[in-house]
Nucleic acid binder design. Structure first.
Length: 270
DNA sequence: ATTGTGGCCTGCCCGC
DNA sequence: TGCGGGCAGGCCACAA
């Protein structure tokens, strides 16, 4: 599913759209337009603009659009386009995507799944294909509602994100307002690496544990990005009934934490 | 404010 | 072979 590693791959792909002029907007499904944006706004405002940049914050991909002839966006109403991918969304530029295998999604190319697209003057396209409609497109997304990005998270930022919270550690890590970019699979993997139980109160970690967690966040995000997806973790193969911890062989426990299916090792995650 | 829960969305897999 | 139920989870609305 698209977590930070996949969305970063999408961002790099979207750089291929930089410098290109939008000629038309395809709203394949009006339900995909979210966050107070009206489909008609997209159709009315985007054509004629040039893609000036592709940025990522957590799982949000932001395309900066500017009038032709300008290099950077100013505060003059040049729109920002926010793209979210839910758990089954793909990004395609000129018909190609960076990721073939997307856990829980389908590899089929059903035309009806193309929920949103930009057509460029040069004939190319940028398309979001999402079977489940859990993603969405929003004009002027609220980027400040997202916490610091997991890929560049500092120890101080992590300490701030955990705070004195009594919420389960994993729930806190999944909260995009606290830390941006961590989804269910990445959360299980990094907690397994850090040796921390997912249901520990977030504020109960001591200094050494917070340091361990911080290293695990950074290292796990980097590793999964290098390997090519959030589903490529070492815990992943054991995330099934009867699965055993790859580290110590203990039978994994399956629980629900933060409303999400959680697999973890009761032997070494404490 | 913080925390937890339910609903949305639909392809896919399993058992009958 | 077809069918129905359960499952997956990012995000949001809502409740306590």
């Amino acid at each position: 599913m698209p977590e930070l590693p996949e969305v970063e791959a999408y961002r790099r792909l979207a750089e291929q759209a930089v410098g290109r002029t939008v000629s038309a907007v395809d709203v394949g499904d009006v339900r995909f337009v979210r966050g107070g944006t009206e489909p008609a706004e997209l159709v009315a405002r985007l054509p004629g603009l040039v893609v000036a940049g592709a940025r990522r914050r957590g799982k949000l991909l932001v395309l900066d659009l500017v009038p032709a002839g300008r290099r950077r966006r100013g505060g003059d109403g040049s729109p920002r386009l926010g793209l979210r991918f839910g758990m089954t969304g793909r990004l395609l530029v000129d018909g190609r995507g960076p990721i073939d295998k997307l856990l829980y999604s389908s590899e089929r190319a059903e035309p009806a799944w193309d929920r949103f697209g930009l057509r460029f003057r040069d004939g190319g396209t940028l398309v979001v294909r999402d079977p489940r409609l859990l993603g969405g497109v929003t004009l002027e997304p609220d980027e400040d509602a997202l916490g610091p990005d997991a890929a560049t998270l500092t120890l101080a930022e992590l300490v701030g994100a955990l705070g004195g919270s009594v919420a389960p550690l994993k729930a806190r890590l999944l909260d995009q307002a606290k830390v941006a970019g961590i989804g269910n699979l990445v959360a299980d993997e990094l907690l397994w690496r850090a040796g921390l139980a997912p249901d520990r109160p977030a504020g109960s970690l001591d200094d050494a544990e917070r340091r361990r967690l911080h290293r695990a966040v950074r290292a796990t995000v980097r590793m999964l990005s290098d390997r090519g997806g959030s589903h490529t973790g070492d815990l992943m193969p054991a995330r099934a009934p009867g699965g055993r911890c790859p580290r110590d062989g203990a039978e994994l426990r399956r629980t629900t934490v933060g409303g999400r299916t959680t697999w973890w090792c009761p032997a070494h995650q404490r």
